[in-house]
Design a protein around this nucleic acid. Sequence first.
DNA 1: ACATTAATTATGT
DNA 2: ACATAATTAATGT
Length: 232
Amino acid sequence: MGRLLDESLVTGLPPFHGLARQQVRQILDEAVSQRFDAGNQVFSEGNPATLFFLLLDGHVRVQRTTRNGDQVILHQIPPGELFGIAQAMGLDAYPATAVVVAESIVLAWPMRLWEPFVTRYDGFARNALRTLGARMHDKNDRIMEMATLAVEQRISSTLLRLVNQAGRKTPQGIEIDFPITRQDLSEMSGTTLHTVSRTLSAWEKAGIVQSERKKITVLQPHQLVVLSQPQG
DNA sequence: ACATTAATTATGT
DNA sequence: ACATAATTAATGT
């Protein structure tokens, strides 16, 4: 929980595009930075939304629990994005739980500052709207996929999204740079861990991916693109 | 075409 | 050793 945040940490990030240095300074002065280890929660479903957040580094996933106890992963937050912005959606409690999947650095602001920020800094408001819009678009895509695509296509689409959001190049291919289980993948693609396991095994034999426990490397992204296409 | 159940094996603290 | 992950086959809708 440190202070003294440098503006350079943040000026390149979407929520701060087009803001004057002075404004960035003012916003940062209100922020508290926090470090989370993997497995910890930033906030949890139903709790009063007292803070909103910006992910500086790491990976956070937003998930919700169904009444039978199943988890559904709603969203993966890449570095540089705002999250937990309940106020922007007219909520006073967090609608979901944010779990840190890889060690993360997070900036936090009191939620009471949301309105002032949005009214004072038009750039901030525009950028916040943009992220919400992009998120909605992504959701629409996923609903379409769930409704129309077969499982193998959904899994490949999900994996491709992860590659784009959290891919790290290695000598062999592109690795998802946070720990991810078959269970996680199944929760993101609306299927079971067994199907994911079988599918990944098949892809591994075909040389498309390579995986160890909690680790997936995509060797041939193009093949995944083909598989994500209907009748591929 | 996919889920569920269950049994088996591997892997990490 | 113990818990968590992953594989695999069999059975069910």
